[in-house]
């Protein structure tokens, strides 16, 4: 049975979602991607039955267990790890031995069996996360609902958690609905993604489709594309703010292009090459990070360019410097509307 949201509208406190239509297939890993405040949690809480839609219908949730995992885990602070995990079984008045067996087996699966007697306040973020998953898992959910589950974790723990989700999804065969603002996480996990902004779904599809064909500049920005420009394309040329860029494709209508920031070469002199796009500009900003430096070159339009920190220091680039920016036509990505 698929999970279907039909024209769902909800206004709750400061949040709002409008005209949500989703058809999430059985066993699908579905990611709702959107910035904070987009209404993602509202959708999850409606699927969980914690909130009623103002209008519209949700199908495929009746009599099915839902495992809800909040970003900050919501482990009950007055119960230890064992009793947190056991909660769903105790509510169901299961027998003591059965609860014990079940909790222990689940803890082993999530590699937290050594934590069972611990106070939840003493756990690390990653450990809390696993306890929260174990607590949800124990009631064998048909639908797992993850609300920004990795947002509070450090990088390593986040990657391990994502691996765990993939494994769990495979093992349980349940529907996973996962909301996040992290597009890399969405690309890594999702069978399909819905991009949500200000309460509306802007685009829904397979990760590749969305990544390669973002419908709007907003989505492209959100997917981490840099240097996104829009305009009409004529004779393989797009004019943006008076600057004429050579592009690899003709499209019938208005289109967006993106230039990856590490596909642009910067140089002090113009050089002969096969690259068709070469523009003189001025450095407007330099931001040095651990190994990369982001240089913004104003060629009439601002171009963000990533170079190594080492070359930035060797070339002694600073704001106000005149520089050339060169990039190949083929490195340009043209987003066509499908």
């Amino acid at each position: 049975m698929s999970l279907r949201l039909e024209n769902v509208n909800k206004h709750f406190e400061a949040f709002q979602v409008r005209d949500i239509d989703l058809d999430i297939r059985e066993g699908e890993y579905f990611v709702i991607l959107g910035p904070s405040g987009a209404g993602k949690t509202l959708i999850l809480e409606m699927i969980a039955g914690l909130l009623e839609p103002d209008s519209g219908k949700i199908h495929g949730t009746e009599n099915r267990n839902k495992g809800f995992i909040y970003q900050d885990y919501m482990l009950f602070p007055h119960l230890n790890v064992f009793n947190n995990i056991a909660y769903g079984l105790k509510i169901r008045k299961k027998e003591k031995n059965e609860i014990k067996r079940h909790v222990e087996a689940t803890a082993v699966k999530l590699e937290i069996e050594h934590l069972l007697t611990r106070d939840v306040l003493t756990l690390s973020g990653g450990e809390k996360q696993r306890v929260a998953i174990a607590r949800a898992m124990i009631i064998s959910p048909d639908i797992y609902l993850f609300d920004e589950p990795t947002a509070a974790l450090d990088r390593n723990a986040r990657v391990r958690t994502q691996e765990l989700f993939v494994k769990l999804h495979k093992e349980t065969g349940a529907i996973f609905v996962h909301v996040t603002h992290d597009f890399e996480e969405a690309l890594a996990l999702a069978d399909r993604i819905a991009v949500l902004k200000e309460g509306r779904i802007l685009q829904c599809g397979k990760p590749d489709d969305i990544f390669n064909h973002p419908k709007t500049k907003e989505i492209a920005d959100f997917l981490g594309y840099r240097n996104v420009f829009g305009g009409e394309i004529n004779d393989f040329r797009m004019t943006v703010d008076g600057i004429e860029l050579m592009v690899p494709k003709e499209t019938a209508e208005f289109a967006y292009i993106a230039i990856k920031s590490d596909d642009i070469i910067i140089s002090t002199e113009k050089f002969e090459s096969s690259a068709r796009n070469a523009f003189k500009g001025t450095v407007s900003n330099v931001l040095k990070k651990s190994s990369v430096a982001e240089v913004v070159v104003d060629i009439g339009i601002p171009l963000a360019v990533d170079i190594t920190r080492k070359s930035c220091e060797e070339m002694n680039i600073k704001p106000g410097d005149p520089l050339w920016a060169t990039f190949k036509v083929s490195s340009l990505k043209v987003f066509e509307h499908k």
Binding site: L50, F68, Y70, M74, F76, A136
Partner: peptide
């Protein structure tokens, strides 16, 4: 959300109140 979590785990609002 503590109570909401309890409800998703099968507690009635009464039970969620009393146990959480």
């Amino acid at each position: 959300r503590y109570e909401k979590t309890a409800v998703t785990l099968g507690a009635t609002p009464w039970k969620a109140f009393l146990t959480v």
